[in-house]
Design a protein around this nucleic acid. Structure first.
Lengths: 342, 342
DNA sequence: AGTGGTGATGTAAAGGTTTACATAGGCGGT
DNA sequence: ACCGCCTATGTAAACCTTTACATCACCACT
């Protein structure tokens, strides 16, 4: 009973008085075995506490029941809620989730590639276009994969993200509704997909509201707190102040808020500020930041679902799944201050 | 070359014109094979791009190269930095990290147990005494395990944590040095080990400073923001105000700060507040919270090191490893307000 | 020259599973 | 009574490694 080594299929077969093949069938294709036999097998399994040896199974089947999740930085607080979605979905389909992070280090990425080659993972989840792998050469050797947030290898791999443009649009519409017209957009790098899309939402919203191009102020940076702060400085120097700062992400928004506060302004009385992403800290900023929530757990869930479908090639992979982001209204937006009205 | 199926050891053997046994030896015990042969084998490996099939290896060896990490909630922002430490250490020893979370759900815990039984994981990392597994019965079947933060199964399993008492002591000493005497301790549940230890540090610090028992105010709660707020209310009702609030964790501290602010007080002018843990949000609070930093990545690293030692039973396991926590001084502490001086 | 030892390599079994193929029994149709 | 078919089960190969044991060649020593 409390044997030291775990029970094998053979133990079960002996007790149920059938062959191991029948046991295997009773487990995986129960409809192919007689009801009475099935019963005996199930009893034997209960007695022995048998669990299929995953190693042997994977070896035989030629594929494992593990999904490798590779992110540049698993320490990123945004990562864990996505992981929750990934893990739940995987687990409920009998898959386990392996995690790895590259820290943008090619050496480490290579190690993971080796990992994949050694059959340890049936599928791959990739964060944000990373993987300095040798491009096309490698693509061929990659198992079924799904990207998160951004397409990987120029669309060679399907991905799950968020409709950035729609999110940005929601922010602009809110600001316009509050009465703002002169709205600055504080971005990060022009090369990032998220930047382009959010910027597109910004432009579309202003177009719809009939705001002329000369009232649009766009600043670029690198997405850090510091770059938000610097953007504020630049705008003050040029002395062409907007009444609202729409930022490409929450970090930048925090930088903008700090920049404005050190100049003695109050938010949202003097200026409105918005972010994007809804990082956990957004609630704790003063004032609490109005921003766009990324449905992170849901993104994880969808990405895993897509990957599992790919694995059982039940369908031609969609190349893009965009989820609807939500506006989270907190306290960093109000009507423009009369002080700036001409 | 760009074969569809990955190369096996047999392919390598054929090309190197040796037997598969020699190939295996050349890889794992190079000193047992002649230099010239080793060379041939290495070339063949390079040609084929061979990687050992981890499934087959694990099956043969009877143990996998995976470590299962089970936490109640992997969405917890504190989790990810520990994970970084765990993963780095594991990876550098050829192990992969599997993650799972129970959400305090017995059903899910059971699934993970099954997982372990099916030989998929060589070792186990457990967070905070969880696992509603059936106690002793299960302990026997558990692979080598290490706990994080708290002992598991009443010490049956070694663990890595932080010296809470020392951390608490650092906080008290700071407050005393600033001139505080009447310091409240806002705790969570009396049953938690962390509570007891931090409380012990509080008492030891006050003892050392010669602060009499009647100046010590202790409130209990459940560690949430709300309970911190409630504690403030209770102290105001009793009208026995301290000049400083030493909180058992950062969440509670935030609640205390909010409670004090809604009553119109300024921190740290009117009251000093301290936390414990240094959650990512601590920097963003207003004022930024003075707290104790948990060396999270280091905890992960140590836990994994310990587990790997257990796995290769190189040494009798220490049952407890306590790391030194650091005081992080920010802006929530100052000298006590003259206003409260009698 | 014979013995024993050493070092390098090969042979083959074992690890636990899945599944193609073989076997066997039962049943309905002629 | 025979044939063919279907269902239920068993046999054995294959998945890829690692490693105990066997083999063999060579060398040193007596």
């Amino acid at each position: 009973m409390s044997d030291s080594t775990p029970a094998t299929i053979e133990d079960v077969a002996r007790i149920a008085e059938v062959s191991i093949a029948t046991v295997s069938r009773a487990i995986h294709t129960p409809e192919k075995v007689a009801k009475s036999t099935r019963l005996k097998v199930n009893q034997a399994i209960a007695i022995t506490g048998y669990t299929t040896n995953a190693m042997a199974r994977s070896l035989r089947l030629g594929r494992s029941n593990m999904i490798l999740v590779v992110a540049p930085d698993i320490g990123d607080p945004n990562f864990s809620s996505i992981l929750v979605g990934l893990e739940n979905e995987a687990r409920s389909h009998g898959y386990g989730v392996l995690i790895g992070h590259t820290q943008n280090d090619a050496q480490r990425a290579l190690e993971y590639l080796k990992f994949l080659n050694s059959n340890q993972a049936a599928g791959l989840i990739l964060f944000t276009g990373i993987l300095p792998f040798g491009h096309e050469t490698m693509t061929a050797r990659l198992p079924p994969s799904v990207g998160i947030f951004e397409p990987v290898f120029n669309g060679g791999i399907p991905y799950v993200g968020v409709d950035d443009m729609e999110g940005a649009r929601k922010v602009v519409d809110l600001l316009i509704a509050e009465g703002h017209r002169k709205i600055a957009f504080i971005g990060d790098s022009r090369t990032r997909l998220a930047y382009m899309r959010r910027r597109a939402g910004y432009d579309a919203g202003l177009d719809a509201a009939g705001v002329p191009a000369e009232l649009r102020l766009v600043q670029e940076g690198d997405g850090t707190l510091e770059s938000g702060r610097a953007a504020v400085e630049r705008l003050f120097v040029r002395d062409t102040l907007p009444t609202a700062f729409m930022c490409v992400n929450d970090q930048t928004a925090l930088g903008v808020m700090i920049g404005l506060k050190t100049r003695g302004y109050d938010i949202p009385r003097d200026f409105s500020v918005t972010g994007f992403d809804d990082v956990p800290q957004a609630t704790f900023m003063t004032p609490a930041l109005t921003t766009i929530r990324q449905p992170r757990t849901l993104i994880g869930k969808h990405a895993m679902t897509l990957l599992l479908e790919l694995l059982s090639d039940r369908r031609p992979a969609e190349t893009e799944i965009l989820l609807r982001p939500d506006l989270v209204v907190r306290n960093s937006v109000s009507a423009p201050s009369p002080r700036w009205m001409r």
